[in-house]
Every structure is written in structure tokens, then in C-alpha cells.
Write a protein that binds this DNA or RNA. Structure first.
Length: 329
DNA sequence: TCTATTTGACCTAC
DNA sequence: GTAGGTCAAATAGA
């Protein structure tokens, strides 16, 4: 890609002043983000022109590309903020002077306690990964205990991902703050496929999906209740709409269902119901493993935004309390 | 019997 | 010394 090559040129530039190189990189990132923003605007114009008069597809494409554009805007605001300014030249060089790292402590240091992602949800376990609870702690000045989870594959696949779940309100349904630490290094795509996992992977026709839920007993029903099906419909609509935009094809709603995905609509229902008691839930074993995209906090931008790359950015941004509908932390 | 959860103890950072 | 994060033995459930 052009972006990569440009950044590579910028980053690979030889020079004695590391601060200068850092500034160059910073400028390069802003430059690329700006260009991405411009290209998104062009793509949006082209897509809307191509899809003019096609109702649902047009609206969905407009929504998705608007969100992409918003992501670029937010990233640019982050990169332009003083906090993201490149380090000053007064900073002492640390690489050579730093002492040899001691044996890494097994426990996370306080510096690492900054979550890579934070979200508020009433379904703290439904994020597409399997977790195992390894601890619970009552935190001072809080009403509810904090639960600690590791990725279920932390041992066999050395996945270091952890998350903390803490109830923060007694509402109905109760709300939880979920904090994620470390990236998943496990390959969740290789999970064994239970029927529900197959259903949620997008490979099962929606008619079959609905029929499965109607036909099966508690097992599948627990995973894909009616609201889950509704959410699945919406997810596929988004995916197919974006594919149509990129492929220039007319969108056809999956399974002939008409699902409205728009700003005016009330937030779609959550997919999960069993997660409202994190201390007793079997830590996500039933949480629809597989390729199902993680569902981001329903509050993000007031929309039911799926966790594709774009919304990863959105979610990340939310934790910085930027202007908008972000998560207030 | 196996696996996941619970919970008190221990360890580390502040 | 305190608070928060993790460990690991005990326990529960399938």
C-alpha cells in the first residue's frame, strides 16, 4: 500500500536526531490520516452516486462511510492534540542508558494497568472470545466486586489477553464496565464449531438460523435467542451492504428480511441475556465463539456498531473521552 | 473424573 | 500499610 510505503520511508530515514525522526513519523501519520479522510469522502460520494435511489443500500452505505469518516476525524484530533505530540529533544536517550531489563515480573505492573480498550455494556461476556474467571476482588469505594478473566487459551496458546468486569449500576439490565488488557494472540477462528458457532459465523443461511433457534432446545436458544437473531440479521445487512458498495452491486437484504439500520432507530436489542451475572456465569464458554464479530458497546455513537476495523478505532477513541458519544472514562 | 468457579492468601506497586 | 492483581487449593457441577 501507499500508506505503508510512505510510512516506511519516513520511519526508515537515517538520521542522528531521533526526535526529528519521531516528528517526521508524527507528521506522516497525520498526513496519511488526512489523505484517508479525503479518500473516504470521495468514496462516499461515489458510493452514494452509484446507489442513488436504492433505498436501504444507499442509507446503509452512507452510514458506514460516515462512520469511517468520523473515525478518521477522531484519529486526526488525537494525533493533533498536544498529548500526542512527538517527544521533545530534551528527553534523555533511554535506549542505551536504560539498565538491562530485570526478570520480567509475572504480574502486570501498574503502568500496564491502562486498558487497551474499555467499554460499558450490559452483556460483559459477549465479546466473541472465551474467558475463564480467575479471580474476584472487592474494590474499595465500589459497590460491586471486580471479576478477573483470562482468555481460555492463555495456557495452550499463550494468549495474554485478560479482562476485568465490574458492575457499575443496578439498573435493569445492570451495566458493567469491561476493561480489556493485552491483545489476543490465540487464533479464535480455529475454534471448534458448535452449531451456534457455525450459525454466528455467518455461514448458515438466516432461514436456517431462525429455524435452528425455533427448533433447538435451551442450548442454542441460550446462545441465539430472538434478539440474537435480530442482531445477526443486522450484522449481515451491514456486511452485505458494504460488500455491495465495494462491489457496485445492488443490495439484497438477507433472507428477504427488512432490517432498518439507521440513526433514527432505537438501539437494537442486545444479543445476550445470560451475562447479567458475571460472578456466576461460566465465563463465556457459551458466548458464541468463533468468527462472530465482537459487539461493541451499544452506546457507541448511539448506534449498533459492529466491531470491524473501523469501530475498533471508534471504541479505542471512546476511551479518550473525545467529543461525541464516547464512553465517559 | 474432568473442568470451571470460588475464595482466601500471597505478591507487588504505590 | 493499603489496595489491587494473581495464584492455587477447595469446591461444585456435568
Amino acid at each position: 500500500m501507499q500508506t505503508q510505503s510512505r510510512l516506511a520511508v519516513s520511519g526508515g530515514r537515517s538520521g542522528s536526531n531521533s526526535s526529528s525522526a519521531s516528528e517526521d513519523e508524527h507528521e506522516a501519520v497525520i498526513r496519511e490520516l488526512t489523505r484517508g479522510h479525503e479518500l473516504t469522502a470521495q468514496l462516499r460520494a461515489e458510493a452514494l452516486r452509484a446507489l442513488r435511489g436504492q433505498g436501504q443500500a444507499e442509507a446503509t452505505a452512507a452510514f458506514i462511510l460516515q462512520e469511517v469518516s468520523r473515525a478518521f476525524t477522531v484519529c486526526l484530533s488525537i494525533m493533533s492534540s498536544p498529548a500526542r505530540a512527538p517527544p521533545s529533544s530534551q528527553q534523555p536517550p533511554t535506549m542505551e542508558m536504560a539498565p538491562a531489563p530485570a526478570l520480567a515480573p509475572p504480574r502486570r505492573s501498574r503502568d500496564d494497568s491502562i486498558p487497551r480498550e474499555q467499554r460499558m455494556t450490559s452483556s460483559p461476556h459477549f465479546d466473541g472470545y472465551q474467558w475463564r474467571k480467575y479471580g474476584q476482588k472487592r474494590i474499595t469505594k465500589t459497590q460491586f466486586p471486580r471479576c478477573y478473566f483470562k482468555c481460555s487459551f492463555h495456557r495452550e496458546r499463550s494468549c495474554r489477553a485478560t479482562k476485568q468486569v465490574q458492575q457499575c449500576s443496578n439498573d435493569d439490565p445492570p451495566q458493567y464496565v469491561v476493561m480489556y488488557f493485552n491483545e489476543h494472540t490465540c487464533d479464535t477462528a480455529a475454534w471448534e464449531t458448535a452449531p451456534a458457532a457455525a450459525a454466528s459465523s455467518g455461514m448458515m443461511p438466516l432461514d436456517d438460523l431462525s429455524a435452528l433457534v425455533a427448533r433447538q432446545g435451551h442450548g442454542v436458544r441460550a446462545l441465539l435467542d430472538e434478539r440474537g437473531v435480530q442482531e445477526e440479521l443486522e450484522r449481515r445487512l451491514l456486511v452485505s451492504s458494504l460488500a455491495c458498495v465495494l462491489g457496485g452491486q445492488h443490495h439484497q437484504s438477507p433472507a428477504g428480511s427488512a432490517v432498518n439500520v439507521g440513526h433514527e432507530q432505537e438501539p437494537p436489542p442486545r444479543a445476550r441475556t445470560r451475562d447479567d451475572a458475571p460472578t456466576s456465569a461460566p465465563a463465556g464458554v457459551d458466548d458464541a465463539p468463533g468468527e462472530m464479530p465482537r459487539i461493541i458497546d451499544e452506546d457507541v455513537a448511539g448506534l449498533d456498531v459492529m466491531d470491524y476495523d473501523v469501530t475498533d478505532v471508534l471504541c479505542f477513541v471512546d476511551s479518550y473521552d473525545l467529543p461525541g458519544d464516547g464512553f465517559p472514562f
